[in-house]
Structure formats: structure tokens, C-alpha cells
Amino acid sequence: MIAILDYGSGNIRSAHRAFELADSNTVVTKDPQICANADGLVVPGVGAFSACIDQLLAAGGGEIIAERINADKPIFGICVGMQVLFDSSDEKGKSDGLGILKGEVSELDAPVLPHIGWNNVSVGAGSKLFQGIENSYFYFVHSYAAKGKVDGAVNSYTQYGQEFLAAVEFKNIVATQFHPEKSGEAGAILIKNWVKSL
């Protein structure tokens, strides 16, 4: 079973549908028990980092995620749901993240922001997430991103004004800065790759 963590962030309906195609037993929930027991937990996120982390913590998401990390159970962070896993972000003033992945989230250095649209990804060696879709385009919509490499992880990068982390695969955590649920066929395959790995 896949649980999509519902902490009041944005449009999670599309994430629900997209994960449902890979695993028909997908639920949107904030129930800590269901989140703890699920085979995979999806952490979505839309909007500003500071608002997202506040909402996430208020909904008990910090404990839910920490518990799964301790139990070495799979987590998939999407967009701001990826960013909150890092140490901090400087979007709208400095905010602390969950500190599960080492690194900081900062604004992209690009002449036109937000970075909106389809971009391809330089897939890190040994990636399981991108198997069969190494040369595909994915849908991004963001102005901030983590840029440094995560030690010991499969780091995949994208270029927009500068290089930044498009995806990370680290132990039982996967995270994408793009929206696989909005990335057509390639996104559907990526989600299936994750679900198969659970």
C-alpha cells in the first residue's frame, strides 16, 4: 500500500491518481498509523518552503517521516516535499528543514524564474528510479532547489541557469524536484519503478 501524506499542501489529487496507476491500493491520509505501515510514503509539496514545512510539522509530518527513516522504510518526496528533507531553505527568510539529507535549498541563479516546463535530466550512475527513461523530459515548476551533491546517494542533475539536483536516491529515500505525476508517460514509468522497488 502507498500512503500520500495529506498535510494540506496544494493539489495532491493528481499525485493520488498517478500513484494509483502503479499501485491500486493508494490512499491520501494524515493518519500516523497508516503512514507508518504503508509500503511507501509519498510526501508532496507545493508553494513556498516556509509555509510547507510549517504545515507539515503542524500535521505531525515530522514525526511520521522520522519514524519511517528510523525503521528504514521507503519515502518519496516531490518538489517542496523533496526540499523539506534538506537542512534548510532561504525562501522567504531562512527556515529549517527536516535535516534528513545534508545540504541547503536556495534560489536558482537564472534570468527567468520560476523554472517552469519540461527539462531533461542527467541521470546519476546506478539510478533505479530512471531505469528505461534516462533520456526523458520531466515537468518542473520551482524557483528554489538543492544544488550540492548528497554524499553516498545517486544524484541526478538538471541545468537551468545553473546545475541543481533534479533527483536523489539515498538509502530508502527518493526525491524529485520535478513533478512525476505531471510528467506524462515518463513520470508514470518513474513512479512504477519506485513502486516495483518497494
Binding site: H115, G117, W118, N119, N120, V121, S122, Y137, F140, Y157, T158, Q159, Y160
Partner: peptide
């Protein structure tokens, strides 16, 4: 790597 131009 480049951002694709969008057709909408």
C-alpha cells in the same frame, strides 16, 4: 540539458 519550449 535544456528547458524545452512549450506548446500549449
Amino acid at each position: 540539458m535544456t528547458l524545452a519550449k512549450r506548446v500549449i
